[in-house]
């Protein structure tokens, strides 16, 4: 689920690198090689130009994962979801515990030790904060102005979204990517340091110790 205001133009090369070899020659070689190796995708990849999923699920960063069971109920809420180790140098986070938890859920379903209780889920998910909702509206207005040919006029609204929901990295990084960090008087690196470093930027998933099987 690509959270990309630029739509297929920006997200496309990462979904189907082989299709964009000419249009985007600077794609990392390992991305292209992996695409050749795995062939056509076996899962669904969607493009979310309006950051709708982030709005509906109160997400603040990428990658964020949510587990949804066969009945359409959330069983693990928003959390950092690395499925490989390509950013391990920055995150210092190993993807193996998350992947093992995921496999356990696939095998045991709602009985998995990694499925959260309803109270715990509600505590983590419910955030009906008017400032967060207003931030989403300011960000949406910024996107509309950007897409209708007013990128400079979009900036004050992107800044307002960041002020109202300072925890959202999506609002910061998407806005920087649409113009320049200079327009915001900061850099991504400085913002990560200011927030408390990569462990705050990517809080490790809350995974209970898996039960030892006899």
């Amino acid at each position: 689920m690509a959270q990309d205001t630029g739509g297929a133009k920006d997200a496309g090369p990462w979904i189907d690198p082989l299709k964009y070899l000419e249009a985007k020659p600077d794609l990392p070689k390992d991305t292209v090689e992996t695409a050749k190796k795995i062939g056509p995708l076996t899962y669904t990849v969607l493009i979310d130009e309006k950051h709708l999923v982030s709005k509906l699920y109160n997400m603040v960063n990428v990658p964020t994962g949510v587990w949804i069971n066969e009945k359409g109920r959330i069983v693990r809420p928003n959390e950092v979801a690395f499925v490989d180790d390509r950013f391990k140098n920055f995150t210092a986070m190993d993807s193996a515990p998350y992947l093992n938890a995921l496999k356990d859920w696939v095998e045991h379903g709602d009985k998995s030790a990694y499925v959260m209780s309803e109270d715990h889920l509600r505590e983590k998910l419910t955030a009906n904060d008017p400032n967060i909702a207003q931030a989403a509206a300011e960000f949406g207005l910024g996107e509309q102005l950007y897409k209708s040919g007013h990128p400079a006029e979009a900036i004050p609204h992107f800044k307002e979204a960041q002020r109202l929901n300072p925890k959202s990295w999506n609002y910061k990084r998407q806005a920087y990517a649409l113009s320049s960090e200079k327009d915001y008087g900061t850099t991504f690196r400085d913002e990560v340091i200011k927030s408390g470093g990569s462990k705050v930027y990517y809080p490790p998933p809350e995974l209970p110790q898996a039960e030892k099987k006899p």
Binding site: D10, D48, P63, G65, N69, E70
Partner: peptide
């Protein structure tokens, strides 16, 4: 519906 879903967001930026 009827399948387990892993919903993951990502971005190009």
């Amino acid at each position: 519906h009827g399948k387990k879903i892993l919903l993951v967001t990502w971005a190009s930026w």
